[in-house]
Design a protein around this nucleic acid. Structure first.
Lengths: 141, 141
DNA sequence: TTAAAACTGCAACATTATTGCACTTTTTGC
DNA sequence: GCAAAAAGTGCAATAATGTTGCAGTTTTAA
């Protein structure tokens, strides 16, 4: 059964990353796996429905997941943080995100490559680079 | 006198871009010119002191300036929109912004070049690309 | 199996931004 | 210049998102 696979996968990821297998953490991780793109707290709640933990818990779990480098936090355009699994990112850079200016939908440009910025003045240490693209998606263009 | 130059410059910019020369708009534009980097509403207020218009007015002015492409809005990391003059930006891309993870200071990497992303799937129309970099600034590294 | 550690939910609160509306300033057409 | 129209502004109230403190629950580990 697909759902059990997903749950097993989530539990395994949690264990590997050193997190406890609590119900809330499993639900959230499963949903992030399903989504495959950044979700805001609110989108997550809509998807999880009844099963969604309290918003405080969601924020705290995301905070832990971010600290453990399991999840990345991106700001897109809806005045909210969006959270996504970090498994498709390399150490210093995620894939670019494309947000449609018309419908608001966000797409992960996982295949696309953008070089790290070069030529910073002495003393600047780059820890993370984020690329955000706005425009029109296929459905709206 | 330098201040008068600045004021004249601000008024000229406003006129060219088709905005009225109201006190509030002139103050804000002058301050953005002086700053030369993105400012949040709060930073702006701190710099303008007494002269700062009501926050609602600030937000509305910024909205108009953005619509008129005089100003760009960027989200950095302090949970607030930051506003900066668009005069150093080309049509589809601003310079990258560097935010220090230690002291929170933001630097405009105006000299640095990053190519536009290439290879998007058919139907995607790019309107704007934004690069955000996190790391440690010279003072903190 | 049970004590310690980790996690969760609720209520209250903080921060940033927006809306409605009355009033003021600026512009425009004479 | 001057009056009417247009544009801009401030205040109060409200919305949206995220955070803190704390008591109670679940999970882990010995």
């Amino acid at each position: 059964m697909v759902n059990n696979d997903l749950k097993a996968k989530a539990e395994k990821i949690l264990k590997t990353a050193g997190f406890n297998s609590t119900k809330a953490q499993i639900f959230i991780l499963q949903e992030l796996l399903k989504a495959g793109k950044p979700l805001s707290r609110e989108e997550l709640a809509a998807r999880l429905g009844e099963k969604c933990p309290d918003k405080v818990t969601v924020y705290r779990i995301m905070e832990r997941f971010c600290a453990g480098n399991l999840v990345h936090k991106v700001y897109l355009s809806n005045r909210a943080w969006n959270y996504e699994l970090a498994h498709h990112c390399d150490e210093k850079q995620c894939h670019p995100h494309f947000t449609c200016n018309n419908c608001g939908e966000t797409f992960c440009l996982t295949g696309l490559f953008l070089p790290m910025v070069k030529g910073l003045k002495k003393g600047f240490v780059v820890q993370r680079q984020q690329v955000r693209i706005e425009g029109l998606c296929p459905a709206c263009s």
